[in-house]
Design a protein around this nucleic acid. Structure first.
Lengths: 156, 156
DNA sequence: TTAATATATTAGGATTAACTAACAATTTAA
DNA sequence: TTAAATTGTTAGTTAATCCTAATATATTAA
């Protein structure tokens, strides 16, 4: 089967789309400077990336103007963001990892997780949430205890 | 704090070390050709990588000879491999993902997971294994059912 | 033991993505 | 409204990887 644009797009370019989507959501607009700040790169790198993304029809931007995502670009940005958010949720709500570290991991893992695995992970989170009315089910509290002490708590 | 060699090493170079370790384990020796085959790159790319790894003191190899990992190189190879294996275990044994897909994901995720998160994930797997004498605990079977049907099974 | 085959290296080039320095356009403030 | 500050672009470099084509060495088989 033929690869989708999203599949052929480098992690880097996906990150640019994600950053633009984030800025649009936060501020309503996305500017070269802010994209650079968010991604820790200098403005010439941003300009270069935008040229490439324009050529692929994923963003539009006029010289010295704001940046917009095309429909296609927005779809990719949303997909990446969804993965990002779900991974954070898994790492914090299931594994009990600090939000800060979870966020850093998510920035990388959002690109390394396959669609298939992502779907299963999302199901897993949904399952845990639905299984128990409590915020953190008993067995996950048992895990917290185990992670901390290395010992198993009495089973139910 | 100062970064370790492993932290400054690119994913790519880590992959080369991992591949060399894998071949040594499988065949007792690692040759340029086999490294290339395992990594899906041509031999000149392997030669280039080996030169870089030699300079960093992570492998030794004489022209036209076998490749060896130094102590330092082996340590990194082992670390990467451990992550690889644990991630496969999590994806297959917990999420119920096919081994083939799990392996592909692991090749990428082994580089995106942090040490912190890796340790927690390992603990999580250990917890699940120890919690229940059965191979696959009841609640994970409930998850399988949920993943398949979208419905929750009666709780215990 | 030499000829054929397989393997390894070198040389040279493409791509991706970052950087700095210099310049251009826009916005802000005096 | 012009000068200063900010923001954006272009040009040219660097670094990491990969590749192909050509060459060198090693191994295998006649």
């Amino acid at each position: 089967m033929k690869k989708t644009i999203e599949e052929t797009l480098s992690s880097n370019m996906q990150d640019y789309l994600e950053a633009i989507g984030e800025l649009k959501k936060r501020n309503g607009i996305a500017r070269v400077r802010d994209i650079g700040r968010l991604m820790n790169v200098k403005t010439p790198s941003v300009t270069g990336a935008l040229n490439a993304l324009s050529k692929d029809g994923l963003v539009t931007h006029e010289r010295y103007g704001y940046v917009e995502l095309t429909q296609e670009g927005e779809k990719i940005a949303d997909n990446v963001r969804q993965k990002h958010d779900k991974i954070i949720k898994f790492l914090t709500a299931v594994l009990g990892i600090d939000l800060k570290i979870a966020s850093q991991d998510a920035c990388r893992m959002e690109h390394s997780i396959s669609e298939n695995t992502f779907q299963k992970l999302a199901k897993f989170i949904e399952f845990i949430e639905k299984f128990s009315a409590e915020k953190r089910p008993e067995w996950l509290k048992n895990f917290d205890y185990f992670a901390k002490t290395g010992k198993l708590r009495r089973l139910c």
